[in-house]
Computed example of a mutant assay.
Amino acid sequence: MSLEPTGRETSAAFAGAVRSFVARECGSPEQRAQLTDHGREAHSSPICHKLGELGWAGVAFPERYGGSGGGVADACVLLEELAYGQVPVFGLGISMIVGRTALRFGTEQQRHEIIGSVSRGEVSAIAMSEPEAGSDVGAMRCAARHTGDGYVVDGQKTWISCAPYAERILLVCRTGATGRKHDGVTMLEVPRDTPGVEIRPIDTLGGREVNDVFFTGVEVSADRVIGVEHQAWRQLMAGLNFERLVCAATFLGNARRAFDDTLAYVSGRRQFGRPVGSFQALKHRLADLATELECCSLLVHDIARRTDDDPERQLPREASMAKLKATELAKAVTVEGMQMMGAAGYTTEYDMERQLRQNIVGTVFAGTSEIQRDIIGSSYGL
C-alpha cells in the first residue's frame, strides 16, 4: 500500500479505513480480552503483523526500505485511531521511533533491515533509562567497551517497554568518558536474543508493559553502531519531534476514547428522572473537556504536518507542548470520566478503570510533564 503525504481528505479516508479494521479485529470487549490476556498484556504480535500486511506499520517510511511512503502526519493518524480503538499494539509507536532513527542516521543496510522489520509489524525496543538515569539520561552508566572488532556491553536498563516482544533493542550506552556527560554516548542495535541479554518483567498498575534489561558481557559487532560513535545525544535530540508526536498522538486517541465512553454513559444513565449528563455540573465539565480535545487535536496534527514539511527542523518547544498537552489531557479526561460515571467507572464491567490505569502513566514516561514544562520554559529564555 502506497500513501501520498497526508492532506485533510486523505487523512480522513485513512482514519476511516483504520476504524473499519479496528471494529473488525478489536471492536468488542471479548476480542480485547482475548488479545491482551484480560488486560495484562499491552501488545499483540498477531494484530501488529496484520498492520504490517496492510502496509500501515510502515506508514512513516519510504517505499524503498519496505514502507508505504507516508510521513509523520500519517503515523499520527494511525496511532491516534489505534489508541482510540484500544488496539493492543503498544510496541508499534516505539518501533516507529527506532525505524525513524535508522532512517535518519543508519547505513543503507541498517535502514533496509530495521525499517523492513518495523514495516512487517515486528517490534523494536529502546533501552535508555537506568535506575539512576531517568530524566537525567546523561548520568547513564551502562557501558560498551571496545574490543578488537566491536564492543562488550555491561550494565542495566530499566522501564524498557515491550522488550520481550522485540526483535532488536536500540541501546543507548556510554562508550567514552569526557568532561561533558552528554558526550561519549553511542547507539547500538542489539538483537534481543544475543547471549548475555536478560529481560525481567516489571509488574505495574497497567499490566506487563515494562521491563528491566540486563547486559552481561554482551558482544556487539562494530557494524551495529547507529550513526556516529559518541554522538548519540545529538542524534536523540534530533529525533525528539517524532518521539513526542508518537506519544502525543497515542494519548490523544486515549483521551478521545475516554471522553466518548463517559459521554455515552452519562447520556444513558438516569437519575431524578433525566440523564445525569443533562445536569449543569456534568454538562459544563464535558463542554470544557470537549474544547480541550479539539485544541489538542489541532496542536498535535499541526506539528506533525510541520515536521513533514521540514524534516530537518527541530521543534523542541512545540513537540514538548504536544506531548505535555495530550498526556495531561488523557489523564484529566479519565479521572473526570471515572468521577462522572460514579461507582460504575470503578468496575471492570466498563473500560474506564483500565483507561485510568493506562493513561495515568503518560505524564511520566517519554519525558515527564515537569521535564516538558522545563523545555518549554527554557525555549523562552527562562
Rank of each mutant, 00 (worst) to 15 (best):
F259T: 04
E198R: 14
G277I: 03
R8C: 04
G217C: 01
S379H: 10
E122R: 11
E63T: 09
P316L: 11
T348L: 07
R32S: 00
Y350G: 12
I303T: 15
V123I: 15
G148H: 08
R257H: 15
I160D: 03
N359F: 00
A73P: 10
E167T: 12
R100V: 10
G7R: 07
Q355T: 00
A344Y: 11
E4L: 13
T6Q: 12
I47W: 00
A281K: 13
T204V: 02
E4N: 09
D310S: 04
G345F: 08
Y380M: 10
P62S: 08
E167K: 15
R224Y: 00
G207V: 05
D260P: 01
G155C: 08
V89A: 13
H43D: 07
R145P: 03
A139N: 09
A75W: 02
A83V: 01
S369I: 05
P131S: 09
F242K: 07
S378E: 05
L82G: 03
G337D: 00
V218L: 06
T107S: 15
A125T: 05
G93C: 02
E219G: 04
D351E: 15
L205S: 10
G121L: 07
C247Q: 07
G239C: 14
L103K: 01
G16L: 01
C247L: 09
G134M: 13
L82E: 03
G93R: 02
V210D: 11
Q235A: 12
T147G: 13
E312M: 05
V123F: 06
E130R: 04
V300D: 06
E167I: 04
L329K: 04
M340R: 05
V77C: 10
L236N: 08
